[in-house]
Design a protein around this nucleic acid. Structure first.
Length: 512
RNA sequence: GCCCCCGUCGUCUAGCCUGGCCAAGGACACCGCCCUUUCACGGCGGCGACACGAGUUCAAAUCUCGUCGGGGGUACCA
């Protein structure tokens, strides 16, 4: 087959396929994480695409836990994944701790199902026991590589004599079970990548049951997909090479296949797959939650990684996504995780929140920092949030933006003082005078309302030929320690007369 | 090594199937200007890509071939 043609034909296929699958019965998709760590960005996107596909087609979204690796799977991780999914709002119809008609949904609890199929495979001579030790396998692999073979296991246990088997057993060797790969090529049909034929000579007799009796991913995955009536397997392209293996297993068992859709990977800025192993909790969904990212932003962001609707829309509500999501518009190449764009979306969604809800969202971050211990002064908190306005990229940004409202125990930012208070004695003297005068003016006014203060300050600057910006920035630093932030008069009013005078005094002292 | 996949601005992408409407459009980022009491917001503008080479064609980002580049897999992980 000619490569280019395959690519181009693909989209046509998708369109027709989608319309078919929509009509033919209920769509059932699944997310099948292995509980060996937190949910990461890539996993969240896989979950979202599955969820959107289900919602769009009024189907079911199933959460299955692929925990056949009993060594590495943990309960804690499983619950962390549930939590992350729930936070994102990706609810599931079956599975997880919720159960359902096709349960159990934990693979570790489904061993008898797999055993049944493995028995079948063994009986029909589609699988065989392999007694090789890991050292032997390692050797076989090395040799195969040197010989430039397309396989790394030679199938030597396929035809073992009963004497040899008895000897192995007497030696205490515990066998694995391997699937026998077919002679004929395997057709892999993918909704995103198109279809192709895989030469079985490039496939080896995969281990489907470990020597400890626990079956492996390639077996359990396809069996459960079939058993649970999954219609579409939507997963990352890291599984692309597993697909022909799984198809071979299903074929040997005479099972009918789900449709496959492999979505391209989410990459880091050097183009490598995002993974727990290499990127740590930098890619953990829960970390973004803690940093003050909104689920709407995460979802919107991750949806646009590999998927697009048209050439204009960037902001998508969840309803919008459900409405518009289509596998036909998922691209084939990987997408780099760009945190700047996430931040942009996050600030957008934070700004969408009204002041009350934004205040609710931000309170935990104040509390975590010990800036507030109760929320009694709700009205004041809301006023602070209102003053901060659109200056938050993350909810956590509320801390550096507002900590001075809660404590006068701050340093004057050296860069700010250098620029606005001045570095020469002469300049400092001038600042000293301005702040002293302003302090006097503010002390003298009986009305501490915003408009009054504003006109008093400007009257002073204009009459004395002082640049407004110089006076205001000097005062801002005195009151907050910073050179940036909300409108100065908002700050003055919110701080209150006593506090303002106190802080001005402190600045004046430090200037003298 | 072997197998598989991918390749449009720095990044996410539209366009590719159905060649001409594309001297390639949008968004994020970056830079500049405007607004302005600072910072942000907003407005305006700028920078910036069809990986390369052949072929087909009157015409190619779009079709074909090759090269190069990147990635994934290669486990008794998933």
């Amino acid at each position: 087959m000619i490569v280019g043609q395959k690519c181009k034909r693909n989209r046509m296929d998708i369109n027709t396929m989608n319309s078919h699958t929509t009509v033919n019965g209920e769509v059932r998709v699944r997310m099948a994480p292995s509980p060996t760590g937190f949910l990461h960005i890539g996993g969240a996107r896989t979950a979202l695409f599955n969820w959107l596909f289900a919602k769009h087609h009024h189907g079911k979204f199933i959460l299955r836990i692929d925990d056949t690796d009993i060594e590495r799977s943990t309960d804690e991780s499983m619950h962390e994944i549930y939590e992350a999914m729930q936070w994102l709002g990706l609810d599931w119809d079956e599975g997880g701790e919720k159960g359902g008609p096709y349960g159990p949904y934990l693979q570790s609890e489904r061993k008898e199902v797999y055993d049944r199929y493995v028995g079948e495979l063994l009986a029909s001579n589609h699988a065989y026991h392999c007694y090789c030790t890991s050292e032997e396998l390692e050797e076989i692999r090395t040799e195969a590589r040197e010989a430039k073979s397309t396989r790394s296991y030679d199938g030597r246990c396929k035809e073992l004599s009963s004497e040899v088997i008895e000897k192995y057993i007497a030696d205490g060797r515990k066998p694995t079970v391997r699937i026998k790969m077919p002679e004929t090529s395997i057709l892999v049909d993918d909704l995103i990548l198109g279809s192709r034929n895989i030469d079985p000579a490039t496939l080896e007799d995969e281990v489907i049951v470990r020597s400890n009796g626990m079956p492996n991913y390639n077996l359990t995955s396809i069996i459960d997909d079939v058993e649970m009536n999954i219609t579409h397997v939507i997963r990352g392209t890291e599984h692309l090479n597993n697909t022909p293996k799984q198809i071979a297993i299903a074929n040997a068992l005479g099972l009918s296949l789900p449709q496959f859709a492999h979505i391209p990977l989410v990459l880091d800025d050097s183009g490598r797959k995002l993974s727990k192993r290499h990127h740590g909790d930098l890619v953990a969904v829960n970390r973004y939650r803690e940093q003050g990212y909104l689920p709407e932003a995460m979802l919107n962001f991750v949806a646009r990684l590999g998927w697009s609707y048209d050439d204009k829309q960037e902001i998508f509500s969840l309803e919008d996504l459900i409405d518009k999501f289509d596998l036909a518009r998922v691209g084939k190449s990987g997408s780099v995780f760009d945190i700047k764009k996430l931040e942009w979306l996050n600030s957008h969604y934070i700004n969408q929140l009204d002041v009350s809800r934004r205040t609710d969202a931000v309170i935990p971050y104040w509390q975590a920092e010990g800036l507030i211990d109760s929320i009694e002064d709700r009205e004041k908190l809301e006023k602070i949030v209102e003053a901060v306005g659109e200056r938050l990229n993350t909810l956590k940004d509320i801390v550096p933006q507002t900590s001075y409202f809660f404590s006068d125990d701050f340093e004057f930012d050296p860069k700010a003082t250098k620029k606005w208070w001045g570095s020469s004695d002469e300049k400092k003297q001038k600042t000293y005078e301005i702040l002293t005068n302003l302090s006097q003016i503010l002390e003298d006014t009986p009305d501490f309302g915003l408009d009054t203060i504003e006109s008093l300050v400007w009257k002073y600057t204009d009459e004395n030929d002082i640049k407004r910006v110089a006076a205001m920035q000097s005062m801002r630093i005195a009151l907050t320690g910073l050179s940036f932030g909300p409108s100065l008069f908002d700050i003055v009013v919110l701080l209150g007369k006593d506090e303002v005078l106190k802080r001005l005094q402190k600045a004046i002292v430090s200037l003298s």
